[in-house]
Write a protein that binds this DNA or RNA. Structure first.
Lengths: 372, 372
DNA sequence: GAGATGCTTGAAAACGTATCCATGCGAATG
DNA sequence: CATTCGCATGGATACGTTTTCAAGCATCTC
């Protein structure tokens, strides 16, 4: 058999070694392009033809161009991934999970960092649309007004770690085991008054915030704490709701404070909280950046942990063990969340994906102590 | 003027609202597709035509499909980004820098996590090739044997944070100010013996490891330390070389140990180092994961920092301040490294990009003390 | 006024692939 | 043997864009 390839293996390497196309393979194998396409995408072909095509393709080290395929099927493969901030270790873990799943599927991932800004998020959605990437897994910053258009444009979206800020926070009963799906999130479509609001549902992969927060609060109450504060950030709506529920009816509103996404803001919120309410004895933070801020603010104000104030941080991150005392945390499986979300977004279409609730775990280390 | 668009704004929203194409715009504006293309990509056109096309395009909210454009110009826009591990805060910072630059250029970023594995890295290169993404900024795990093919395939690659493992470590004179470019990296082409090895050069954006390490070592020596160890990981070749140089001629080889990328390995290496050489009085770690491991291992062995052992960690990460004592670090501008690398990879072609060396800074906190 | 020059414009040709459809052929069925 | 069926095959088309090319037209120059 004679291969008349593009001179790739000549003694003198051609500067213009264009990548082989399907046409080159077809010619070299003496078949039509349709046959090559079929062989390579698993269609039917006679054994000898298949073998020949495969051999030629390997010899030319032909790789089908995603460009042609994408244009033909009017969609780009792979998925988008939007996280608020890659500097936050938790989102790093989540991203690693997504990447692991994507790699095993051979799919590319295009990354966007939203900075917790709905506007940037909307821009990024626009970019995916332009790229015809029709799958995205997102830690949403904006509400329905940014996601309804994406869904209407035909994108498959899966939320991870959070729900959009204006979604109802009434998570399913905490009696659900982690293996059971939660009811799909209902998003209200942001349409003009004339048309009735249509419910739009998007699957989500979430940690069981409610159980996690409740366990932490119970733990603190068991240690005798009564004035427990919550330090939250963007996207911690479900967590603060769970906190309110766990604390019980008369929740001291001064003990629930919010920061924006930045570290400065987190520090300011923590410091302000400690100063305005020196009587508080315990703090639960809604994320690791807030936890970091709380430790820093406490140290700055000469509050000792856990003697003066007990601390429970959401997210288990490697450095939680480095603090002294090591931080007691509500661990959520960041990597798993990402992996499962990627699975969902890839499986969508074949199966109707349902949401997933993953378990949290209270890891008791040294940052909580008995009252006084 | 009458717009006869695709019924997108009809009272009843069509389920099949296909996205408007350039053809739709052309027809609705009564011009040819070529004219629309020209107007939208800044070509010349008469003012009235331009205005009309723009109006129609806005009305149909037309967005040019990247698919068509990519196929036409045989290249996908945007860039790839390869980092070893997004769980490492430093690479999170670097990624944020890349994303910031990419966003301002409106370019997508496809992300890959290599896990410090050359094989995975090679696979990811293959994926970029398939996607016709011809620009990549990489924290390289493999050596020339994985990068030479990418370059030969016509990719524009920029290294960040490291050079390939088999590159010569002789960084340029440390007298270079940070604003001056360093000589481009020479990569030896991995060709068969017959053909002479051709030098291949790739621009890189690096921190001035040499100055950083030297400053740290001098600082430790100034405190009286003589038995200083270095704890390195993958890609820390330049740092260990700088360490050797800074320490001077007879370097105790037992005091230079390496781990692989994993946290377990880092801990094992740190613990082994402390146990095998209890006489060491100071440690410099080549990265923050190693620093974390060193703190953990020291605590486990009841070595107090800085009383029993002084510690300088490469990378300034938010949690360095949280440790007690807070960690003295060699700070490198992770975000800037990413941003500059993205600039380089985008500018390539117009200007011949040259490498960049960014300054490091020794941030003295509390993890180093005088000998005994 | 004839020719040259500049600008605007649209038809058409790619780019590399997947898929529809018609063709041809051998086998199975009547 | 005639017909049908199934299967392998290749030609042709479409996907949405950019770019080339030639044509049309108005203005400028000698």
């Amino acid at each position: 058999m004679v291969f008349q390839g593009g001179g790739k293996h000549d003694g003198i390497v051609s500067m213009e070694s264009r990548r082989a196309t399907i046409k080159d393979v077809a010619e070299a194998a003496g078949v039509g392009v349709a046959t090559v396409s079929r062989v390579l995408s698993g269609g039917s072909a006679s054994p000898e033809t298949r073998e020949r095509v495969l051999a030629v393709a390997a010899h030319l080290d032909y790789r089908p161009s995603a460009l042609g395929r994408n244009l033909r099927q009017r969609r780009t493969g792979g998925m988008g991934l939007f996280v608020p901030d890659l500097t936050d270790t938790f989102y790093g873990q989540l991203a690693e999970g997504v990447l692991a799943c994507a790699r095993s599927a051979g799919e590319p991932v295009v990354l966007g960092s939203t900075g917790d800004d709905p506007e940037q998020e909307a821009e990024l959605v626009g970019m995916l649309l332009e790229q015809s990437v029709d799958r995205v897994i997102a830690v949403p910053s904006g509400g329905a007004e940014t996601w309804a258009p994406a869904i209407k444009a035909g994108m498959t979206v899966v939320f991870a770690d959070r729900l959009p800020s204006d979604a109802p926070f009434d998570a399913p009963s905490d009696r659900d085991s982690a293996s059971r799906g939660v009811a799909d999130l209902m998003l209200l479509d942001g349409l003009p008054p004339a048309s009735r609001a249509r419910p739009l549902d998007v699957p989500a992969v979430l940690a069981d915030d409610r159980a996690g927060i409740r366990t932490a609060v119970r733990y603190l109450r068991g240690l005798g704490h009564r004035r427990i504060a919550f330090l939250g950030g963007p996207g911690h709506g479900r967590r603060v709701a769970a906190f309110r529920e766990a604390v019980g009816a008369p929740v001291d509103e001064e003990l629930v404070v919010f920061a924006t996404g930045s570290r400065d803001s987190a520090y300011a919120a923590a410091s302000g909280l400690f100063q305005s309410r020196p009587d508080l004895t315990a703090v639960v933070t809604g994320g690791n950046v807030l936890g970091e801020a709380a430790v820093l603010a406490a140290r700055e104000l000469d509050l000792r942990v856990p003697r003066d104030v007990s601390l429970v941080m959401y997210d288990d991150v490697p450095w939680a063990e480095l603090c002294s005392p090591p931080l007691t945390v509500i661990a959520q499986p960041g990597r798993d969340i990402g992996y499962r979300a990627a699975e969902l977004v890839l499986r969508a279409g074949s199966r109707r994906p349902r949401s997933v609730l993953l378990p949290t775990e209270l890891i008791v280390r040294g940052s909580c102590g008995p009252l006084h």
